[in-house]
Design a protein around this nucleic acid. Sequence first.
DNA 1: TGCTTGACTTGGATCGTTCCAAAAAGTAAT
DNA 2: ATTACTTTTTGGAACGATCCAAGTCAAGCA
Lengths: 344, 344
Amino acid sequence: MNTRRVTLNDIARGCGVSRATVSLVLRGSPLPAADTRAKVQTELKKQGYVYNRAAANLRQRRSSSVALVVNDLSNPFFAEFAAGADEALGAAGYVTLLGSTSESPERQQTVLTSLMEHDPAGIILSPAEGSDGEALQQILGTHVPVLVFNREPTRVQWTASHWDYLALANRRGAELATRHLLERGHRRIAFFGGHADSSSCRERRRGYADALAVAGLAIEPGPMIETAPTRLDAAAHSAALFAHAPAPTAAVCYNDAVALGLMLGLATRGLRAGRDFAVTGFDDIPEAAVSTPPLTTLATDPRARGRQAATRILERVRHPGTDAVRGSVPVRLIIRASSEVTIA
Amino acid sequence: MNTRRVTLNDIARGCGVSRATVSLVLRGSPLPAADTRAKVQTELKKQGYVYNRAAANLRQRRSSSVALVVNDLSNPFFAEFAAGADEALGAAGYVTLLGSTSESPERQQTVLTSLMEHDPAGIILSPAEGSDGEALQQILGTHVPVLVFNREPTRVQWTASHWDYLALANRRGAELATRHLLERGHRRIAFFGGHADSSSCRERRRGYADALAVAGLAIEPGPMIETAPTRLDAAAHSAALFAHAPAPTAAVCYNDAVALGLMLGLATRGLRAGRDFAVTGFDDIPEAAVSTPPLTTLATDPRARGRQAATRILERVRHPGTDAVRGSVPVRLIIRASSEVTIA
DNA sequence: TGCTTGACTTGGATCGTTCCAAAAAGTAAT
DNA sequence: ATTACTTTTTGGAACGATCCAAGTCAAGCA
């Protein structure tokens, strides 16, 4: 527990060659003679040598880590995302520096500052709600590639910055869900839940409005019903849907958690989703498939998104010159029983 | 995007002092004169200096990161755990090196090797199922403090190693749940789900057996019914509970996911948990409170566990000499409707 | 004036690697 | 034995910080 760490010098001394030779062996260079290589390798094993990547990185002026900063790890969507990103980064020989911000922009500043001191090769950032782009740019500087995921900070000079941006096709997805409900004959369709100041929520609501506009219908029940993006808060606010007659017959929910909460809320009013009222979600979290009734939703495959984000930031690390990419990833409508009810 | 990183030397040159002085200012030493300090500080800001912790750590022969290796990040329990650990580590000025192993011992070896090269101050490890203690010891060596969480690897020389161990009070928890069912009058109680080769599962089953033994009752329905610790697999195996008459009237489930799966399985047989059959879970995942019916379970507060693990490993980093600690954290029985049914 | 004191400041060595130019060792032909 | 190679090995200078012993300089005092 207390002996000094074994270094290249120890190995070199141990088998009578120079530090440089050991280094060559270590990195699999073809230069060292076969018997030298063998001698060194047994010595490495014998002394239990552990490579010190920090020292190597210092000399080589490059980094072997990528920072992954998420706004809410306890959200299964982001947990899966993180797992996918870590998987892809690890496969590419990078190590993941984790930071979680709990949706606090202040904590996010602290976390990013600390991570920057570890000189990450790149940063994958899913910003906390209400993040200020200028503050972020201040901290992140212009040396490190950044991939912004899922949400847009306010006041970002996208034209000036070289940040990549990757988001779900929120607008398109909500439009798909709404069209699906329209096809089942619903005419009074509400958009339910989420915070109006979250960009993903605004986009989803826009997609919903798009579909209604094409069908020549009005937004129900007028002003948006805001909730925290959680089951509990959604359940608590579900009564607001029925405040004015005629009540809607279907709701496009901000995400699955909200949809599951709404289904609970419906149950307490004696309504059953899929029979008396149609509900759609967003994300396709694992519970969506096994809830009662199973939830119609939009699959986003967060683990694949994590891998995608990792792949893209590594691409950017390798080619820093190229233009920033703004991408949106397609989502897939998964039709289940919660939207089964049709209106004559 | 391509300019060199700003170093202490640049700052020193920029304001006509020595590197050492800048370093003193940076670390808030009282030595530098007030006006020197001010001069340096404006220069730091002007050039946009970013501290290079790797270089500092190299010189100081210490580390400012802790590795966190979990077996399954997509499991909400571990996601919360990771969030809690990261929170506490961050607050102490450490950065979290994330590794996720997807329950694969091979991947775990790779991940740990890679993390070790980054010289973490300590390691929090929730081992993949089937981890081999000797292989782990081989990689981790004896220099770095390790806290094993939640599961015991096979073949660990606990007496020889200085690893700390932190686990839930699995045995005690399952015993509590079983006693609770006994108090409600149940006499034929099964233990349902989980893998027999997972140590947490074996412990829970032992607690269950303890309670039955005290009551002088037999284990139902004899051999353990094994399932993957997921909803789907549990639902698929639930019929096995009713293979022999008389069937059990209650089940202590390996965890919440299994319990929720079992409730689904019961539903397909026309049985309702809490009315026709009593069910308990383990973990108190967020859904447990809002399922239908709400699930009686054991609260473990994974976020607090994460903080606790972080606190302990940091304690160990500060005092490497002290003896290893084997700790178990208490769990709390949360009684909800799923176990409401009483037997006359 | 010289000498001590205290408040600041500094150059050089160091951490564990990699890079590089050049030395050493081996081989073959003259 | 000398030259002209090729193959292998090597010492020393980086990388960007910290530590430490020693330096400067003005004030204070005899």
